[in-house]
Amino acid sequence: MVSALLVMVGLGLVLGALLGYASIKFRVEGDPLVDKIDAILPQTQCGQCGYPGCRPYAAAIAKGEADINQCPPGGEAGVRALADLLGVEPKPLNTAHGVPKPKSVAVIDENLCIGCTLCIQACPVDAILGAAKQMHTVIASECTGCELCVAPCPVDCITMVPIPETVSNWKWRYPVFEIKAVS
């Protein structure tokens, strides 16, 4: 009886010590769920979800503070992927946060730009090049199309231009067939 108790207590102590050690040794830095959610988000950093960037939104979803349908650039596909990850039902995009738009890049009209640097400060990914009283320009390959630079411009010289379809980014279409009525 006593020996059995001792064995059980001893086992408990040993295993407890092992678990305690493992939890320190193999400690996971940060929240892996936030990383997983962040990986799905489109990284536009546009803030349309109501959070100052994709990662804060991911953190809010992980905490349960934000819903999964607040990201217009991610679109319905993004909502589906988030629903899959979190094991919840997908829901339609919340249009209060905006509607999905074709992918665009910001273009600065360099004749109008006065070199105020306001757009440079607004750009979340440092995709605008320029200096005070110097002409600014957008690095198109780095622009996420978040539109955050459009509002601060005092001379309205920034426009969002949809990316045109070219031979290099052309995609095969989903096969569709015309159904003919039988007379």
Binding site: P42, Q43, R55, P124, D126, E142, T144
Partner: peptide
Amino acid sequence: AANLARERNQLR
């Protein structure tokens, strides 16, 4: 492109 944007945003 998203990975690049994430990296640039974090650097910023």
